[in-house]
């Protein structure tokens, strides 16, 4: 019988094998600890992205779509 941490390490070790990452340089225990930190960081984003069905993550546009007021103006100015 293993404790929770042991289970997590074994799960990670299995996943590493499945991904072809079973290499002496990649330690399952260290990877499990690192993953826990990264998953905690990801969880912290729930405060910013509360619902999974909200923002379209593919809608990134560095040119910024116009604000609604600007969009209305743009529509008004558009020739028929």
């Amino acid at each position: 019988m293993t404790d929770g941490a042991g289970d997590a390490v074994e799960l990670v070790a299995r996943r590493l094998r499945e991904l072809g990452l079973d290499h002496p340089a990649i330690d399952p225990a260290a990877t499990a600890a690192d993953l826990a930190d990264r998953i905690a960081a990801s969880a912290s984003l729930d405060a910013l992205v509360p619902g999974s069905g909200g923002l379209d993550p593919t809608a990134f546009d560095p040119a910024w779509p116009p604000e609604p007021a600007d969009a209305d103006a743009a529509v008004a100015e558009r020739p028929n």
Binding site: V12, R15, L16, L19, L21, A25, I26, A30, T31, D34, L35, R38, I39, S42, L45, D46, L48, V49, S52, G54, L55, D56, P57, T58, A59, F60, W64
Partner: peptide, 28 residues
């Protein structure tokens, strides 16, 4: 860097897409 790359392969897409959503919220 190795740990970052390994984590990127092991972690599921949910975390990536949540970060992309967060990026959108920050840009907005």
């Amino acid at each position: 860097i190795r740990s970052l790359l390994v984590a990127g392969l092991v972690m599921g897409p949910e975390h990536y897409f949540k970060a992309l959503q967060a990026r959108r919220a920050i840009a907005d």
